[in-house]
Design a protein around this nucleic acid. Structure first.
Lengths: 352, 352
DNA sequence: TGCATTAGATCAGTCGCGAAG
DNA sequence: GCTTCGCGACTGATCTAATGC
């Protein structure tokens, strides 16, 4: 049985309040010196530590931010997420906020978030993180829930949802479009290694793909849209299968660097040279991108900054009730050696 | 103002207990159908959600595990930690436990952990994660604190501390020793890219280094122990400096793959071939190791398993009060192309 | 006796008010 | 009237025992 204020106060013949006052500020003058000394001694003896749960209840402030991630698998392996977490952490820790991850077993995003919210009243704020399992529509439902419950929150890793809420949006300006860049290099058969069709990132990428192609009057071949599920191994096998099926392409744009790893593997296995035969571009500019062979051209997404700004705005909302704001961060295409000017591929030679 | 049981019960002319009973089990037969319906409707209208803080206080069970990491910088970029977190998460989420990270601004490990503990009574259990900032002695102090407070806890990423506590220890069997392997390949000037001298991992590595060398009757050159601070860029510059200072070596063992990246950079800059001129071995076998140029030989550390087993044992302790157990996981040397048989280096040729 | 319901204690704190000196 | 010192009421839930019909 852990020592509590009550136990200490009873043993000393004081009120809980008196003991509480002392611990809140040991230099207080509201408690007599003798009593301070007695409290200190007994607390030390009983190894007293305040109960944060009770503190939170009584002060109606928990100093805990819940991070809601609509995904029911381990997600700390995602470099995307980890970059954002680093940014979030840098702000929250400075301001003395803890952050918590809530478990769920739901199958889809709205269910997961709803369940998380059911177990969340009492936390000071929320960070909603978009994932591959969370369509834009899903996230809108989630946002509606948050608004209805009147929770302070911020949305990360999602396209602009249109609400007047705290949101950090990472956008790709035309000048940083991987597809546009590949087209400029002369590639016209560009394979898109994306995720499931409803994943927001995939939706945006396909939209951008179509725009770029229609601008140039080129037809879009839907067979070039693969679903690598944001997993290295899936991307690898999808690509191998595409090659085996005789699908022709001279460049690949992968919506994560991890899938680009899978692409590298598949191309190596097939004896295709990067970028001699096939150009590859990744997304997120993970720290390992420049160490690959060849170094990977990648779209840098400012997730660290997104996490940092998101957390800042959330705290502003919590502590000063500032009005929500939307911030746009521009992605940047980082050129490395995995992408090159189009050169017709001699299929007989390249693929065994 | 968020709706509470009290508000609902007052508006309906019922007692808090009645409303509480309903929410605990909506199919209960202790509440009449009409009242159930009234409660449901009002709760819906007021957007009622139970307050987890109050629930925790009342049930004396928070279903929250605190993860204590004695480091005051962002740590989600560490692949080590992330692997462990994935394992932890896989267990906790299945069992319905949340997990929380506690902020601190302390300068050293005991201070950080002490501060974290001061803000932690009320959580169900603790995971103590060893870091570069936490010497073995530091961790012992932390463990003493935990024992004194009678908190359920488990220690990860630390050498065997000798206590009868829940601990998962990752050990390197002789057959997986990078140093031993390099010696067998004929290398005798082996550079050790480690961390600060008190970091547990560094202590162990230096100890192992000395053992291997003394077994073979070889003298140890302390100039070959560098402090790369577990950071890519620090490792890079330390290595460049060593090379510039004319320190001779034919192999490098880096205590993290991240530092191996730095080593790759430095060697490339100096025009030294891996493994032709210099063999490189990393540690942790991060997912990117096999994609490097050349693929990196690395000591695989089972951090995912450590996290998983640690969380399991912690929950066993919490839920069934099982006695603590210590588990040893064996590291494994994964051979790739960055390490090769010793070949005398022509310095004039190699370094410009 | 069983069904539907409630008062009140409890958890471990905080906060503002009040009473001596 | 200003300290110094301390207490009662309250936070939002759960749980036990009791009550009325």
């Amino acid at each position: 049985m852990a020592a509590s204020l009550k136990i200490i106060s009873e043993q000393l013949g004081l009120s809980k309040a008196a003991v509480s006052i002392y611990f809140k500020d040991p230099s207080t003058r509201r408690i007599s010196k003798e009593n301070k000394e007695r409290i200190r001694r007994l607390a030390d003896e009983l190894n007293y530590r305040p109960n944060v749960i009770a503190q939170s209840l009584s002060s109606l402030k928990s100093h805990v931010i819940a991070i809601l991630i609509p995904l029911n698998v381990s997600y700390f392996s995602s470099t995307f997420l980890n970059q954002a977490l680093c940014g979030i952490q840098s702000v929250l820790f400075n301001k003395g906020y803890n952050f918590i991850f809530i478990p769920t077993r739901g199958s889809n995003s709205p269910v997961i978030v709803r369940k998380q919210l059911e177990r969340s009243r009492g936390y000071d704020g929320f960070i909603l993180f978009g994932t591959r399992a969370c369509s834009e529509e899903n996230m809108r439902e989630n946002v509606e829930q948050m608004l209805k419950a009147d929770y302070p929150f911020v949305v990360l890793n999602m396209p602009d949802l249109g609400y007047e809420i705290n949101q950090i949006v990472n956008v790709t300006p035309k000048s940083s479009s991987a597809i546009r860049y590949l087209l400029e290099l002369g590639h016209e058969k560009i394979l898109l290694m994306a995720g499931a069709r409803q994943a927001p990132d995939t939706v945006l990428a396909i939209q951008e793909y179509r725009e770029c192609f229609s601008e140039r009057g080129l037809a879009v071949n839907e067979n070039l849209f693969l679903n690598g599920d944001y997993e290295e191994m899936v991307a690898r096998s999808e690509l191998l299968q595409a090659i085996n099926n005789g699908i022709e392409f001279s460049a690949i744009y992968c919506l994560t660097d991890t899938m680009a790893l899978g692409a590298y593997e598949a191309l190596n296995e097939k004896g295709l040279k990067i970028p001699g035969d096939i150009s590859v571009i990744g997304k997120n500019d993970s720290f390992f991108a420049r160490f690959l062979n060849p170094p990977l051209t990648s779209v840098r997404v400012l997730m660290y900054e997104a996490g940092k700004l998101g957390a800042k705005n959330l705290l502003r909302r919590i502590e000063s009730n500032e009005t929500p704001r939307k911030i746009f961060l521009k992605n940047e295409l980082i050129l490395r050696l995995s992408s090159a000017v189009y050169r017709p591929l001699n299929m007989d030679q390249g693929i065994e």
